[in-house]
Design a protein around this nucleic acid. Structure first.
Length: 910
RNA sequence: GCGCAUAUGGCGGAAUUGGCAGACGCGCUACCUUGAGGUGGUAGUGGGGAGACCCGUGCAGGUUCAAGUCCUGCUAUGCGCACCA
């Protein structure tokens, strides 16, 4: 326990101001056209009232936190780290005169609530509501200036109506590669050869941005659901670390791959960290190369046509070095091409590969396996017959599912060729003679690549690529191709606690099922109540249990899958703009004001802060939906989040990751109880740069807490403070009333600040302002500490300077700042959070005399004091006159004297 | 294996275009107040040396009048991806 006595009465101050802010709706943001009460501080600050158009409103500043999943264990110190940073900037911008949008909400669909429901039979809404209430209490105890009228909850049917609405638009759209954007499915041109309604329907269904797939998906037995690629890590589920297996199932998918190029290109326009952009680039995984057709030797299809095996390669320049081909075991041509004598061996291998999980496939990566299938292909450049193998090192899901193997210049092909003793031919010469060519995969010079028709020899790798690609295209043997690692997004889950799809299933004249969208007027589709939230015994999702809900009067049935948790978090930042709008996900005016780039504002969310764990999943999905909504005309920017910052992880006091099992978890409630919300906020920011990983230190909290105590004692009168404490001891239940008896320090007087005081004050203003502009919260706090340390030595404390300091302190420690501010008679009529941010005046920082360090050959030898107006010549003279300097110059010849920007003197001598 | 980030006192971290390394805070030492302790205050605190001085920003080089900062090559830690042809 740190102390018996409090540094200052934060326990009375903090609830008092939190209540007041709520009563006054102090942090409401007003949409264009909304009625602004004349007595609201925002109205007074900007001389506005009533309904105001977007042009009349001050510039917007949209500062956003990643909304939390309200778990049962409550807030963790990592959450408020980002929230405090954004709150400081929200308050700073409010003070600067911007119109701040700073909202909070709940990403409340999710597996833990559902698993709890399975266990207890209680509807997940009940536990969700309790968790939300607890999270909200904790967040509010920290004094964040959110506009709670805009609170959203993804499980609220008024909210998920619009999640379902976006899905409907995806369902009703296709991606036109010509225009590079989504368009209505009604405008999809249908090939003429499709005549029947069924054919046309199937064609349309194959083009929708939301479509049904029967491809193998990741099935997690323990979670009872399928997972997206991105939710599977090393063959285990991201949540819970359960094993997953590959299994073909009917699933809804979203065609995110159509947006790959735009998702990649537009990264250039946004202010995200380099590291984060790289992660997204890697995930999208664009690679440029060529698809090349290899004719199969001695083989025709049933119609007597030649059959071709198509491969993708990023190194078409190495085509002459292709000595064998490899197909993935799942490749559709495998069964056709396998010779009779190899059939058994090949089938065994396929069965064996199918049994392996992906984990096993990668763990065994070093040891290549494979089988020759008894067929050959013809290398199109030189007519060589090369054997075709199958191996699980070739993935069915990337490129064409088959490769040409160039063992000399590809590590995997090299390992495979060595193991199976396949020929290795050099076709690239490394730049250095000393580098062995075997297994050399970098660029070099082409060799051994000549026929009567074509020669690459002597060309650099990039020249050779260009030449061979052109040659292949001219001979119709191949085409330039771009491939992406990004896969379509698996969008359905076999869960209860998620958004139901606005989709029904019908049967056509052949008795085959097909899907149809529900009309918008049917939204929201609300999940039915259940007694049992487990999947059914046949593996169907839990919604299938609600037979009355599933079966519609006309004989059609509802889709029983639900959407993944990402659905709600993909667009919540848009709902905040106009959270109560029942006619649209966000009104046009509100959207263009808050997200638009008018009046020099940043396009999209000005600042988005959250954990790095969402570097690919949430941030890629949200960008995809945003671009889709842009195509639809629903949003006015191509990107949702202009600037994004990842806060670093906070470690336990032992330097280890916080975990219940280690017993090193810090509970914010405990810290707030002991030191107060202001100290908590201040410490979270004082620890170090926001983006860095850093360990918690209770001693460090005590340090900033002591600072706030010094602030309190600087402003509060000693005698009345002591009287207040005694009164509180005597009448603890009247403590709040006694707080009002604390008077302002008598040393605070309405006097002119001295030049020395102005220098200290403006130094602090300058440092805090510049640091806030660059999110350097830790150094801004240290600047305020310096001010307080200085002010403690002052005999008289000028009112104006002390009030200005409180404006600086307010964003960081708003409660104590408000309490002290209230002790002044302020006639501005504005509450503290709306006080104009003080400008700093460089004139006050100027000095009459400056002290300069003098170096000889780069080593500090003396300091000299000169007039601030001294010329370089005068400074040089003064420096050379110094005795100490002369000692070091003895016997040396002065080569040069450097005086850069009057910062120091360096004498170079020999 | 590939990509990215980071490396500064006993600790968290400062050092804005290359210009006084260690701001601010923690811890520690001494003293004052209190006097049982804690709180509060003052002074000191990178290492070595009695001292003039010398050495110091993960390691090794380089550029420069001047390098924590720029360049080259390493090492360690963290994160991401991982048979992506």
């Amino acid at each position: 326990m740190a102390s018996g006595r409090r540094q200052y009465p934060f326990h009375l101050i903090e609830p008092k101001w939190q209540e007041r802010w709520e009563d006054q709706k102090a942090f409401r943001a007003f949409n264009p056209g909304e009625d602004i009460p004349a007595d609201h501080a925002f109205a007074k600050r900007h001389a506005l009232s009533g309904a105001v158009s977007a042009d009349q409103l001050p510039p917007k500043f949209y500062v956003l936190d990643m909304f939390p999943y309200p778990s049962g264990s409550g807030l963790h110190v990592g959450h408020p780290e980002g929230y405090t940073g954004t709150d400081i900037l929200a308050r700073y911008n409010r003070s600067k005169g911007n119109h701040v949008l700073h909202p909070m909400g709940w990403d409340a669909f999710g597996l833990p609530a559902e698993q709890y429901a399975v266990k207890t039979g209680q509807h997940p809404r009940i536990s969700t509501e309790a968790n939300v209430a607890n999270f909200k209490r904790q967040i509010q105890s920290l004094g964040f200036s959110y506009d709670w009228t805009r609170e959203v909850n993804t499980t609220d049917e008024k909210y998920f109506k619009w999640s379902q609405w976006i899905f409907l638009q995806l369902y009703n759209s296709w991606f036109n590669p010509e225009t590079n954007k989504a368009e209505s499915i009604d405008k999809l041109p249908c090939p003429e050869e499709l005549t029947t309604e069924k054919q046309k329907r199937e064609y349309r269904d194959s083009k929708r941005l939301a479509f049904v797939s029967h491809a193998p998906v990741w099935w997690c037995e323990a979670l009872g659901t399928v997972l997206a690629n991105e939710e599977v890590i090393d063959g285990k589920s991201e949540r819970g670390n359960h094993p997953v297996v590959r299994k073909p199932m009917r699933q809804w998918m979203l065609r995110i791959t159509e947006y790959a190029e735009r998702l990649l290109d537009d990264l250039d326009d946004i202010d995200w960290s380099h590291a984060l952009k790289e992660m997204q680039r890697n995930w999208i995984g664009r690679s440029e190369g060529a698809e090349v057709d290899f004719e199969i030797a001695d083989y025709q299809d049933d119609d007597g046509n030649a059959v071709k095996l198509r491969v993708f390669t990023t190194r078409p320049d190495t085509l002459f070095g292709a000595t064998y081909m490899v197909m993935s075991p799942e490749h559709e041509l495998v069964s056709k091409l396998t010779s009779a004598e190899k059939k058994e061996e090949v089938e065994d291998y396929i069965a064996e590969a199918g049994k392996k999980s992906d984990l096993e496939r990668t763990e065994l990566a070093k040891d290549k396996t494979g089988v020759f299938i008894g067929a050959h292909a013809i290398n199109p450049v030189n007519g060589e017959r090369i054997p075709i193998w199958i191996s699980d090192y070739v993935l069915a899901t990337y490129g064409t599912g088959a490769i040409m193997a160039v063992p000399a210049h590809d590590t995997r092909d090299f390992e495979f060729a060595e193991k199976f003793e396949l020929p290795i031919i050099q076709v690239v010469q490394p730049p250095s003679e000393d580098t062995p060519w075997q297994g050399y995969t970098d660029h070099g010079t082409s060799v051994n690549s000549t026929t009567s028709d074509l020669s690459l020899d002597g060309l650099s790798t990039s020249e050779a690529k260009a030449k061979i690609t052109e040659w292949l295209e001219s001979k119709k043997l191949g085409t330039k191709t771009i491939n992406y690692k990004l896969r379509d997004w698996l969008f359905s889950r076999q869960r209860y606690w998620g958004e139901p799809f606005p989709i029904i299933w019908k049967k056509d004249e052949d008795g085959e099922p097909y899907h149809e969208a529900l009309p918008e007027s049917d939204l929201p589709v609300v999940p039915p109540p259940l007694e049992d939230y487990k999947p059914t015994s046949t593996g169907e999702p839990p919604l299938a249990r609600a037979q009355e809900w599933v079966n519609l009067p006309d004989g059609s049935t509802r889709e029983t899958n639900t959407m993944p948790q990402w659905a709600g978090s993909c667009w919540y930042y848009l709902r905040y703009l106009d959270a109560a709008n029942e006619g649209a996900l966000a009104g046009k005016q509100a959207e263009s004001y808050w997200m638009g780039a008018d009046k020099g504002a940043k396009p999209g969310v000005d600042l988005y802060v959250g954990g790095t764990e969402h570097a690919v999943l949430h941030l890629l999905y949200a960008r995809f939906w945003h671009k889709f909504l842009y195509d639809l005309g629903c949003v006015s920017t191509t990107e949702p989040f202009f600037k994004l910052v990842n806060q670093g992880i906070i470690l336990g006091e032992d330097g280890q990751k916080m975990a219940k099992s280690r017993g090193n978890v810090i509970n914010p409630d405990g810290v707030v109880d002991e030191f107060g919300a202001d100290a908590f906020r201040l410490y979270e920011m004082f620890m170090g740069p926001l983006e860095m990983m850093k360990p918690w230190s209770t001693k460090g909290v005590e340090g900033v807490y002591r600072f706030l105590g010094r602030v309190w004692r600087l402003f509060a009168d000693d005698v009345s403070s002591r009287a207040f404490e005694q009164a509180c001891t005597a009448e603890p239940d009247k403590a709040a009333a006694h707080l009002e008896t604390v008077k302002l320090n008598a040393a605070i007087e309405d006097v002119e600040a001295t030049p020395e005081q102005l220098k200290v004050l403006h130094g602090a203003i300058k440092k805090v302002t510049e640091d806030l502009d660059h999110m350097r919260f830790n150094t801004a706090i240290s600047a305020m500490m310096v001010f307080v340390n200085e002010a403690n030595n002052w005999e008289k404390l000028p009112t104006s300077a002390m009030k200005t300091f409180l404006i600086l302190l307010q964003p960081f420690a708003p409660h104590i700042a408000e309490e002290l501010w209230a002790k002044f008679d302020d006639d501005s009529g504005l509450s503290l959070p709306y006080q104009p941010w003080p400008p700093f005046d460089e004139a006050h920082l100027a000095e009459d005399e400056i002290e300069l360090p003098v170096q000889v050959n780069g080593k500090l030898r003396d300091r000299i004091t000169v007039s601030a107006s001294a010329t370089d010549e005068e400074i040089e003279k003064a420096a050379l006159a110094s005795e100490k300097v002369q000692q070091f110059l003895e016997g040396k010849e002065i080569k040069k004297v450097i005086i850069p920007r009057k910062k120091l003197v360096n004498i170079a001598a020999k």
